[in-house]
Design a binder for these strands. Structure first.
Lengths: 258, 258
DNA sequence: CGATCTGTTGATATCCTTCAATTTTGGTGG
DNA sequence: CCACCAAAATTGAAGGATATCAACAGATCG
C-alpha cells in the first residue's frame, strides 16, 4: 500500500521540510548524510544504558524506542523513534548512556560521522537551526509526557499516546488519514504510560466499545480524533509540528547570506 | 552566610566550568553575556502558554519553574530553573509557548539578544558545545522525571526531587553540604510529582520521623543522602553533572584551533 | 493583627494494581 | 499445512496506594 512511498522520499527531508522550504542544495546535503545505511531486525538493542555513547544516526525506516530499566527489572519507555528522527547527535558529550534504546520493527538507520555534522552546521546555518528545531520538538514531546504521567487519567494517557503516534507518522508521510501501523504490545503501551498492561487492555476495550478506535492485528484507526484529543486534553499545536514563525524564517535567511 | 559567594561568581561560569576548564577569554565573553540584568519579584510570570516566545535569558539569581495549566485548572510543574540555566535560547523557532514559567523567589535574569548567541557560538565553538551540553543535561533531567512519574512510588518521587534540587544547587555553588533553601510549598512539590499536597505532606512527615531529612521554614537538610538515593533509585551519574569525556574534550580543542 | 495561604491530621472513596486463570495470536519446525 | 509453544490479549476478583473531603492549627504578610 504505502510501502513504495516510504522508500520514495527520505523521511529526514520530509521532516525538515516541515521546518521550512528547503533548497535543492540543502536537500542534496541531507540525502548525502543518509548514504551510510545499516539494517536492523526487530527487537534488537541500539543503545545500552551504562555504555559509552555511540555515533549519531538517523532513523530511516522502522520504529524504535528509548527506555530505562529499573533496579527491580521494571521498564519505563521514554520516547519513540520514528523515521526522520535524529539520534545521539550530541551524546558524545556524555560519558555514559543513562538509558537504552531498541527496535520495535525491522528497520534501517543512517549512521553519521560526528565531524560531518559539525561541518554541515557550519556551512548550512538553516540546517543547523532545523536540527535545533527537531531537538526542541523532542523536548516538547517530553513535556507532554510529563504532563500526561503527572496529571492525566489512564484514559487520557492512552488517548494521548495514540494521537501522538498518529500525528508523528503523518508528519513524515507515513500515514495520510487517521490509520497507522502500531507495532506496540499492550505491555509496551503500559510501560510508556506508567500503567499495567491489564489496565491498558481495559481502556482499549472501552475505547473500542465506544467506537473511538479500531485496533486489530497492530493496525490502528482513530474514528473520532476530536473526542480523543479532548480526552487527552491535547492540541496538535503543543507538539509544534507545523513549521516556524515567519519572523524566524526571515532571520535565518539573513544568516544564510552572510 | 553564603550570600556573598553567590554574588561573587557568575553562576553561568560556574556551570559551564563543569563542562570543562574555560579560558580567560571565554569567561570574559560569558560575563559580558550577562551584563543586561533584570530584577524580578517572587511569584511573577516570566512566560505564558499561548504567547509568542520571548527573548532568551539566563537565570542569575533566584529560582523559577516551568509549568503547564490544564483545562480544569490543575497544574503540572515541568522543571525548575536555577541560577546558571539558559532559557528560551531557541524557542524563537516556535510560534507559541506550550507552557508557562514563573518565579518562586525574587531574582535576577540576564536578558540576551538572539544575534549575540549566534555570533558567540560561531566564534567560540567550545561555548557552543557547552550550550548543547546544558540542553542535554536538561533533557536528562526530563527523562528522570518521566521515569519517576511513570514508575516510582510517592516516596521514591519525593526522595528524587529533593536529591535533584540539592545536586543542582551544588553544581552552581549554591550549597556546599546537603542543605539548601527550598522555596517550594508542599503544593508545588505535589504539582511537580503528580501527587496531592496531602500525600506529599504525609511522605515528608515520614521522612522526618525516619530521620532522613529536616525541613523547617523552607530550609532543607538531607541527613542520609545514600538512603534517599536508594529510595529514588537514582545515581548522580544520571544527571551528567560531572563534565565531558576526555575524548570529547580533545575533539573540541581541535575545533578551536581551526 | 486579622486575613489568607500553608501545613497537618483523620475518615472515606476510588482508580489502578495485583494475582490468577483462560483464550487468542503468532511464530516455528516437522 | 498443521501441530505445537510462547507471547499477547482478555476477563474476573480482591487489595492497596493515593485521592478526596473536611476540619483545624500554624505561619506569613500586608
Amino acid at each position: 500500500m504505502i510501502g513504495d512511498r516510504r522508500r520514495a522520499t527520505n523521511p529526514l527531508v520530509a521532516k525538515l521540510s516541515r521546518f521550512g522550504p528547503l533548497s535543492q542544495a540543502e536537500i542534496g546535503v541531507l540525502e548525502m548524510l543518509c548514504s551510510n545505511e545499516e539494517q536492523f531486525r526487530a527487537h534488537v538493542d541500539l543503545l545500552n544504558q551504562g555504555d559509552p555513547p555511540r555515533s549519531p544516526f538517523i532513523v530511516i525506516r522502522g520504529m524504535a524506542y528509548r527506555y530505562r530499566i529499573l533496579a527491580d527489572g521494571r521498564r519505563q519507555i521514554l520516547t519513540f523513534l520514528l523515521p526522520g528522527d535524529f539520534c545521539e547527535l550530541h551524546t558524545y558529550l556524555f560519558k555514559a548512556m543513562d538509558h537504552s534504546a531498541a527496535t520495535l520493527t525491522p528497520g534501517r538507520l543512517a549512521v553519521i560521522e560526528r565531524a560531518t555534522i559539525t561541518t554541515l552546521i557550519a556551512r548550512h546555518p538553516r540546517i543547523g537551526a532545523a536540527i535545533w528545531w527537531c531537538s526542541m520538538q523532542e523536548a516538547a514531546i517530553m513535556r507532554e509526557r510529563i504532563v500526561g504521567l503527572g496529571r492525566r487519567s489512564a484514559r487520557g494517557r492512552v488517548a494521548y499516546i495514540l494521537c501522538e503516534l498518529v500525528w508523528r507518522q503523518r508528519e513524515v508521510g507515513l500515514a495520510e488519514d487517521h490509520a497507522i501501523r502500531l507495532p506496540l504490545t499492550q505491555t509496551d503501551i503500559a510501560d510508556t504510560l506508567g500503567l499495567t498492561p491489564i489496565h491498558v487492555n481495559r481502556v482499549l476495550q472501552q475505547f473500542r466499545r465506544e467506537g473511538l478506535i479500531t485496533l486489530v492485528q497492530r493496525n490502528l484507526r482513530l474514528h473520532d480524533m476530536e473526542r480523543l484529543q479532548d480526552l487527552a486534553e491535547l492540541t496538535t499545536d503543543y507538539l509544534h509540528l507545523t513549521g516556524i514563525p515567519s519572523e524566524a524564517a526571515r532571520y535565518l535567511d539573513g544568516l544564510e547570506r552572510l
